[in-house]
Design a protein around this nucleic acid. Structure first.
Length: 220
DNA sequence: ACCCAGGGTCATA
DNA sequence: TATGACCATGGG
């Protein structure tokens, strides 16, 4: 059962344990957007290297990314995995970004239209679009990722098989449109997943009493 | 050697 | 709508 009370209780537990996360780890909104594309199904540590490659060459810029040769761009993105596809997706995004007139112009757009526009870019799906909306444009959007789905379903708040926007809208309705809360909540969910699911000895004594992938494989 | 990671697209039924 | 194949590096 999804309730405001349950969601806030989980949020407070996470906040008490981990403290403020101050996401997104980037210096500019544009860097947030680049990171959002590069982190698709990829560990953030790998994304950092790719972004460092871009920044070190002065390529953390839409025009310069768009002008770069595909094989050069792919080479800089190599550490983040899927580098050929991501080079194409990053160019698709930068083309859209410039066509739309850049950040100041996009920032005036209503959230639902900005989302629709983002989703029209080949390579940007629901989660990447919502990462950008929340962390680059400060819009009150609750990002649903695999961690969120898993944590909330393990806590019995959702079934886990809801459609993306169904789950997002349900949570947003419970919590109200609070960008600062959504920002911190999502960051805490990711932090929890890393801290208690990836670090040994796994999640045998998880603070939220949830299990993790590989944690209960049936061995006694 | 195996599993996973802050997903998304495309072909197919 | 709902699966499956594919993309690819790096850490545990």
């Amino acid at each position: 059962m999804l309730t405001r009370r349950g969601l806030l209780a989980t949020y407070r537990s996470l906040l008490r344990i981990f403290g403020e996360q101050h996401w997104w780890p980037a210096d500019t909104p544009f860097e947030v957007m680049v990171g959002a594309v590069l982190t698709q199904n990829t560990a953030w540590s790998n994304v950092e290297r790719a972004i460092a490659n871009l920044a070190g060459r002065g390529k953390l810029d839409a025009e310069r990314i768009l002008r770069a040769r595909n094989d050069h761009l792919a080479g800089w993105l190599r550490p983040s995995g899927y580098f050929n596809i991501k080079a194409q997706r990053l160019k698709n995004f930068c083309r859209w970004y410039l066509e739309q007139g850049g950040y100041r112009r996009l920032a005036r757009m209503p959230t639902h239209r900005l989302r629709q526009s983002l989703l029209s870019v080949n390579g940007i799906g629901h989660e990447t679009a919502d990462d950008i909306l929340l962390y680059a444009f400060d819009r009150p959007v609750f990002v649903i990722d695999a961690y969120t789905r898993r944590l909330f379903s393990r806590l019995g708040l959702v079934t886990g098989d809801e459609a993306y926007d169904d789950m997002r809208l349900a949570i947003e309705q419970c919590l109200g449109h609070d960008a600062a809360l959504f920002n911190e909540y999502h960051a805490l969910i990711v932090r929890h997943a890393k801290e208690h699911c990836r670090v040994k000895p796994r999640c045998s004594d998880c603070v939220l009493n949830v299990s993790c992938p590989g944690a209960n494989t049936g061995s006694p």
